[in-house]
Every structure is written in structure tokens, then in C-alpha cells.
């Protein structure tokens, strides 16, 4: 429990620190990683596509989040 709480706190701190990624992981390579995740990847890919699809109906073109 304590460990989970600590992890959440650590994650919150970390999320504020994008500069730690000094290396560009590459957009295509990042997306591919969703495919390489085995069984757990199925849901992620479905959601990824669902978000992209519904973004069209929400009237937000891809890339508007930037």
C-alpha cells in the first residue's frame, strides 16, 4: 500500500519532468511499441484507434493536442 502510494507520488513528480527524455524515441517507433506488447497490447491498440477515430467526430483533427 505504502509502496503504491509512493509510486503514485513519484509518478506525479516524474510526469512534470519531460526533459529527462533527452533522446528522441521516434514517433513511429513509439507507436510500434504498442504492437509489440503481446496480449496486453490488444486493448491499447483498440483504444489508440478508437481515440483517433472519435477525434474525427469530435471535430478535432489529429495533432490538435499539441
Amino acid at each position: 500500500m505504502l509502496r503504491s502510494a509512493m509510486f503514485v507520488v513519484a509518478a506525479l513528480v516524474v510526469l512534470e519532468r519531460p526533459a529527462a527524455a533527452y533522446l528522441d524515441p521516434g514517433t513511429g517507433s513509439m507507436l510500434l511499441q504498442a504492437l509489440l506488447g503481446g496480449v496486453a497490447a490488444v486493448g491499447v491498440i483498440a483504444k489508440l484507434y478508437w481515440h483517433r477515430l472519435t477525434a474525427v467526430f469530435r471535430g478535432k483533427p489529429q495533432g490538435s493536442k499539441r
Partner: peptide, 17 residues
């Protein structure tokens, strides 16, 4: 995708990566 716009990190996170 390498030159495509959009925040893939955010999309992946939202999709449960």
C-alpha cells in the same frame, strides 16, 4: 508517422500503454 503531427506520448498513455 515520424513527421506526423500529434502527441503520440499522450495518446499512448490515454490508451493504457
Amino acid at each position: 508517422y515520424d513527421d506526423a503531427p500529434g502527441n503520440v506520448r499522450q495518446e499512448l498513455r490515454a490508451a493504457g500503454f
